[in-house]
Each structure stands twice: as structure tokens, then as C-alpha cells.
């Protein structure tokens, strides 16, 4: 089937099999390999992207379901060379180690903060329940999100 969608501001048209996952499409067809796969049960959040303004797990939906949608991946959130405040906060607070969970963490956290500008530490921890990090113990991720929230206008 043919699908068309907008990804990181660019229009994309492609011929795909109906059972293609959005995550597979992003990684394999578009070679946007910043979106990662960490599980096969939709539980780790490494694959999170923005779809029509919401953070979604791209391994949990078919690309067909995203037909016509506007999608942003980790490659699309910086403004040129200027990092998004969330990316910047992760850098400043050592919110990443191996970097594997990072794209999903950053994408999920952006929406957490956008939806709740005065987010508390507890709300951050609850809000990131769907994102697994094995490296950081979450301590510095929580710190990063808190800092980004103040910069993003909380």
C-alpha cells in the first residue's frame, strides 16, 4: 500500500507492506536510526516519537495507521545546531550514559513537560514509567527533565 506522511518537516511517500511497523519504517526505510528498538512488547519506550503532537511508541503502531500524520523523531527536534532545551538539559545533567534509551527518553520527556509545565519530581518519575534506562538509575534523567522544564517555560 502507499502511504504519505510528513516526517521531520519533510513529505514522504512510500510503498509499504500493510504489516510494517512505524518503527521499522523509520529505521529501515528512512534510515533514521536515532529511533531505537529495545523490546518486542511495547514496554521500553526506546522507540518513542512524536505523532501529531503526542509521544507514541513507534513499535506499537503500523505505519499505515500513521498515514497522513505529522511525525517528529529525535533527528528533528534540534533547531539547526542548537539543541532542544531537553537535549541540552540531558547533556548538562549527565542524563545519558550509553545513549540507547536517550532518544526515547528525550521524546517522551518533551511531551511530559509540554503537557505539564510545572511538573514535579514525582510526576516525572511516574510519567517516565514507560521508558526503561538500564544505565543511569534515572537520577540524572529526572534532574535533566526538571531543568528542561524551567527552560521550556514552566
Amino acid at each position: 500500500m502507499e502511504i504519505s506522511l510528513k516526517i521531520n518537516g519533510k513529505d514522504v511517500k512510500a510503498e509499504v507492506k500493510p504489516n510494517t511497523l512505524l518503527s521499522t519504517f523509520i529505521r529501515e526505510n528512512l534510515q533514521l536510526t536515532g529511533t531505537h528498538i529495545g523490546c518486542d512488547t511495547s514496554q521500553c519506550g526506546a522507540c518513542a516519537v512524536h505523532l501529531n503532537g503526542d509521544a507514541v511508541k513507534s513499535c506499537a503502531i503500523l505505519v499505515a495507521q500513521a498515514n497522513g500524520a505529522e511525525i517528529t523523531t529525535i533527528e528533528g527536534i534540534a533547531n539547526g545546531d542548537e539543541l532542544h532545551p531537553m537535549q541540552q538539559a540531558f547533556h548538562e545533567n549527565h542524563g545519558l550514559q550509553c545513549g540507547y534509551c536517550t532518544p526515547g527518553m528525550v521524546m517522551s520527556s518533551i511531551k511530559l513537560v509540554e503537557n505539564n509545565p510545572n511538573i514535579s519530581e514525582e510526576e516525572i518519575r511516574k510519567g517516565l514509567e514507560g521508558n526503561i534506562c538500564r544505565c543511569t538509575g534515572y537520577h540524572n534523567i529526572v534532574k535533566s527533565v526538571k531543568q528542561a522544564a524551567t527552560v521550556m517555560g514552566g
Binding site: L83, F90, H91, L96, G99, P103
Partner: peptide, 19 residues
Amino acid sequence: VKRKEDYRFLVGEGNYTDD
């Protein structure tokens, strides 16, 4: 010192084996 390796991971340009 803030980490030199962060940037490529933060912008989705890490280079893992499956990439």
C-alpha cells in the same frame, strides 16, 4: 567536564551495530 560523546547520542546519530 561535560561529556564529549553526548552530542551524537542526543541528536540520534549514534552508530550502534544494528544501525
